[in-house]
Every structure is written in C-alpha cells, then in structure tokens.
Design a protein around this nucleic acid. Structure first.
Lengths: 218, 218
DNA sequence: ACCTGAACACCGTTCAAGT
DNA sequence: ACCTGAACACCGTTCAAGT
C-alpha cells in the first residue's frame, strides 16, 4: 500500500524527461500527501521523513515549502474542513442540522482531525463554517445577545461527540475490556451496557435536537 | 490502562527518617510528580528524563515502576479525575449539575487532562463518575432505553466544552489574531465578537441547561 | 528559486549489569 | 527487589552547500 521505495530509481545517466518520476514538490502535493499519511497512520504517524519518502524527495526539501511540522498540521487540518454545501432552504433548522452533520462527517472521514482542531488556531475553512452557522442562526431570529452562546454550545457538542467517536473508534478492544472491568463494580453502567453502545449517529442526533430546542428563537 | 502487575511495595514499618535526600521512588510519587510536570509544561512537556530529574533518580529507574510512558499518562490522568463529592439531595437536577461542574473543574485545573481523556481507556475514577451519573439519572426517572443517550450526550457536551476551553486558554494571542483575520471576511462573526467571547462558564451552563431540559424525564 | 546530505540535539526504551 | 549508565533507533530542524 505504502508505495515507498521511490528512492529515485532513475539512474539512466542522461537527464531525459522523467518517465514516471514524481511531479515536482509543491505545497498542494505536500498537504494532500500529509492528509493521506495521517489517514493511514494517525497523528503520531506523521513524520517529516516519512512524508518526504512518500513524496519522493529528501526530508529537507519540505522545509523550503513549509516552516515546520506544525505548519503541515495546520494546512492538513484546514484542507479537510472545506465546506462545499449550500444552504438557503426555508427551514433554518434543517440547514443547521445539515451543516453540523456535514462538519462531523468531514472530521470522521479523517479521524485525526477532530482532536487536532481545538489545539490549533482557527483556519479559514473552519471560520467559514462558523460564519455560515452564525448567519443562519441570526437569520432565523436568534438575538445577537444569544448568538455566541448558541454557536459555542453547538461547537462544544459537535466537537465532544466527534472527538470521542473518532478516538474510541480506534480502540474497540479497549471498550470491550472496559466493559469487562465494569462488571460487578459499576452496576448501573453494566446494566445499560454503556460502553458497548455504538449508536453514535443516533446519540449525536438526539442530543443535537435537544440543544436546538433550547437554542431556537421563540 | 495499567494493571501494574506484581509491583507495588509499600514501605512498612520503621525505617530511618529520610536524611534530607529524596524519598525513595514509588508509583505514587511518580504519578504525583508527573501531574506537577504536566501542569507546568503541558502534554508535550512530559519527558521521561525530565520526570526522572524532578524525582532525583535516573531515567531508567522509572521503568521498574512503570511499563512505559503511556502508563504514566494513564495513571496521571486517572489520578486527576477522582471524585470526592456527595450526592443525594432531593433535587436530581442539582445533583447532576454539581457532578458535571465538578468534573469540568477538575479537568480545567489540569488543562492537559481533557484532551487526553478521550484518547485513553477509561480508568476507574472516570468510570465511577459515569456510574454515579447513571445512577442519578436513572433514579430521577430516565427510562433505561434513554439512559445511554443521556449519558453520552452529556459526555459529549462536557468534553467538547472542556477541551475547547483548556486548549484555547493556552493561546489568547491566537484568538486575538484570529479575530483580526476575521475582519472584513466573516461579517457575522466579526459583529458578534465570537472569538473574543470569554464567558466560558456562562456558555457552559446555558448549553447544559438546554440539554437537561431535553433529557429530563417526563 | 529550489533541493540536498551531514550533523546536532534531542527522546523513549532495551540491555547488561550493579546493589 | 530496586536502581543505573551506556547504547540504540529514532525525529525535528540548522547549516552550509549545491543547482
């Protein structure tokens, strides 16, 4: 899968046009490849040397395009948060639900992104999502004084749900062993099978509905 | 999670009072010092060598008490999540609010803990908190079928709020520069001053109230 | 403008060894 | 049972240099 071994296998002497060589380095290629690597190996799997390997370049070549590793994280994160949807139906609540479901889905497609987002400065794509959300709620009649509370409450909920799901997803074994450790010690949790529950989508949607009920303009 | 196999010996009985030097290494001392170091330097600041330095021992001495660095993280995290409160008033909603505020406060006291919690297996102290929460909600009349939804919704909200706050807290400069970048591009956000809002406690409480309204047994 | 290898200052952990 | 230094296999980044 990892098409490494791209150790520049062109030793035909003359500098003929690259037959199948790598295209030249560019910021876009670096970011796209970083996302691939992060998807495949997780947050800890992104190493500058490994990224360079995938790109068929030397490690230090990356540093001409990028300041440092944090830069790579920021760019990869924002690239994954682009919003391509539209809004403008007559139903503000449907619009909001769609935006938040899409946001969550984008992060779940790249399980490293959710836990990274709160730690980094907000990039243009996430700001655009917040702007759209604000505009929709404001247009629906949420008073200015209530707007920030609404936005941050939704942010908190979506981020918590997505971080939790994408982290727990990685370790089903842990959950099973957790449920086992629970037996005889935590009777209520044991009875409800809390740690075995995996209706993530349903839970997400129901909690979100409760929040929107409360936030809805009256 | 660490089930520290056979280790653990408590110095029983009378030995010579410590002559000014460091007390001997012990799991408890290691965990307590790790928490101090994490509080002072953040998640990235915990290094085995630095931890050993603080303890006045060689690095490798730690590895007799602990399997690896992840072990240290797990133990530090759980130690910070202990719940010392009581419940049992007649007001289930007050009980729940108190438990969740206390949980959040514990994590905010150790800003590295919130972002760590979703990534690790659930330790005994957080399980005890979940058990208490489940029991309270169940006793208040939440049907078994609704219990997991209630717990996970609250979990999502509390974790999202706490992770966000403890992360953003570290970088007020980022928020200011974020608000600056926002000007002229994101009018609704600019007008509401979303990124400058710092009524974290108020936002937390209001969103939580909305959730509880929805989750409350009818 | 763009790319590179050598080298530095780390860091977690294995190992063989000491008491 | 408990602790240790030397050594290994990394990793991000600086630097001087190449085209």
């Amino acid at each position: 899968m990892a098409a490494k071994s791209s150790k520049r296998s062109q030793r035909t002497g003359a500098s003929v046009p690259e037959p199948r060589g790598e295209p030249p380095l560019s910021l876009d290629r670096i970011v796209a490849t970083a996302v691939e690597l992060l998807d495949a190996e997780g947050l800890d799997g992104l190493k500058m040397r490994r990224l360079a390997d995938r790109l068929g370049s030397g490690v230090m070549s990356l540093y001409w395009h990028v300041d440092n590793k944090e830069d790579v994280f920021d760019l990869a994160l924002d690239s994954v948060l682009e919003y391509r949807g539209t809004i403008g139906s007559q139903d503000w609540r449907a619009d909001v639900l769609h935006m938040l479901e899409d946001w969550r889905a984008s992060m779940l497609r790249h399980p490293w992104s959710a836990s990274l987002l709160p730690r980094r400065a907000l990039g243009p794509n996430i700001l655009a999502r917040l702007e759209l959300l604000s505009k929709t709620l404001s247009g629906a009649g949420v008073a200015d004084a209530d707007l920030n509370v609404a936005i941050w409450s939704l942010w908190n909920y979506v981020m918590g749900a997505t971080i939790t799901r994408s982290s727990f997803d990685l370790s089903d074994a842990d959950r099973a062993s957790g449920q086992q450790r629970v037996e005889h010690h935590y009777p209520t949790i044991e009875r409800s099978g809390l740690l075995l529950d995996d209706d993530w989508d349903g839970v997400f949607r129901k909690g979100l509905d409760f929040l929107l009920d409360g936030l809805a303009p009256r």
